[in-house]
Design a protein around this nucleic acid. Sequence first.
DNA 1: AAGAGACCCAACCGCGCGTGT
DNA 2: GACACGCGCGGTTGGGTCTCT
Length: 225
Amino acid sequence: MGRSPCCEKEHTNKGAWTKEEDEQLINYIKLHGEGCWRSLPKAAGLLRCGKSCRLRWINYLRPDLKRGNFTDEEDELIINLHGLLGNKWSLIAARLPGRTDNEIKNYWNTHIKRKLYSRGIDPQTHRPLNSSLSSTVTTCTKSKTLLSSNVNSSFSNTNNELRLESKQSVSPLMKVNGAGSTQESNSSSGGVSSDDQVFPQRLNLELSIGLPFPYQPQVSPINLK
DNA sequence: AAGAGACCCAACCGCGCGTGT
DNA sequence: GACACGCGCGGTTGGGTCTCT
C-alpha cells in the first residue's frame, strides 16, 4: 500500500530557495494565510512540495523569527527544557519565542552538546559522565567523521552505565581514533580532569531544573500540547 | 596562497499522529 | 475498524563557509 508521495517529485525544485521563490511564498501567505500546505505550492505558483514550503516559512521567512546568536539565558533554558522534555524540539521551541525547532536542534547539536561535555555532563541523560569515561571523551563536532568511523562496539565504564551501542546513540561530539579509544579534547574547557570539576555542574543542573536528580519523568508542570 | 579538515545550518526524508470518510 | 490523507516532528545530510597548517 504505502503512503502517497507528498508531491510529484519530478516537477518540483529542491535545494536552496531563491529570492524569487521566497517572495512568492511570502506574498501568498500574506494574502491567504498559512495552512493547506499541500495545495499551497500550486496556488502560489511555486514548483516546490508543500512540506518544503512549510519548512521554509516556519524556519526562515516567518516575520516573528528572532535571528542571531543565542543568549546565555536561552542556552540555560534550552538545557533545562531538554532535561525535562528530551529531544522534543518543537516543545522546547514553543517556550523560546522567535526560535524554531530546527534552529534549536541545530544549536543543540553544534554548541550545547559540546558545552555539556565540557562540563562533564552527558547531554542525553543530563547526568555526569563517569570520570573514567569522561577521560576518554573528545569533543568533535564533525558528525560525519564519527558516523563513518563504524563505531558499534561498546566502550564501557566500570559500571556499564554508558555504552556506545549504535550509531544513533553515539554523540556527534565524540570521535573515535584509530584504535577505537577516544581522547579528551582540551579545546574549550581545558579538559575535565577530576570529579571535583565535574560534579558542581550536576548541582547546578539539579537546582536549575528544580527536580530530583537523576530526573525521573513525572507529570510535567508544562502543558504538553 | 592553497589545500584539507572542521564547523555550521538550511533543507530533505521518513515516520507517526490526528482526522475524515 | 480500515483506510487515505495532510500535517508536524525528529533525525540526517549536503554543501557553503571558516579555520588551520
